[in-house]
């Protein structure tokens, strides 16, 4: 039981950290936004593992449903009409 919990934690911690690193390291802003979505969802999993089920639901509703949609809008409004060039300087 404790081992299974530890394995689950390690698994989702790896997902969280890897996607967070992906947010700051990838070239394209849109890919960053997608990685941010993965990171926020995996943080919600950590909340569930810490008996904060309501907070996990709020995390998904507010962050993934609100913040990430806003960021998506901004990315798509600012993307230059291009084939290879991206906004990132």
């Amino acid at each position: 039981m404790a081992l299974a919990e530890l394995v689950a934690f390690a698994l989702f911690a790896i997902v969280t950290v890897a996607s967070s690193v992906g947010v700051v390291l990838v070239e394209d802003v849109w890919h960053s936004a997608l990685f941010l979505g993965v990171a926020l969802l995996s943080v919600a999993v950590h909340y569930v593992m810490q008996q904060a089920e309501f907070l996990a639901a709020m995390q998904i509703l507010v962050y993934v449903g609100g913040v990430l949609i806003l960021i998506t809008f901004a990315v798509m409004l600012m993307r230059e009409d291009d084939t290879t060039e991206v906004v990132e300087a």
Binding site: V24, V29, S32, Y63, V67, I71, V75, E88
Partner: peptide, 12 residues
Amino acid sequence: RNALLFLMSVEL
């Protein structure tokens, strides 16, 4: 240096 990435980093 991208302002949008600033915002995402602050979220993190």
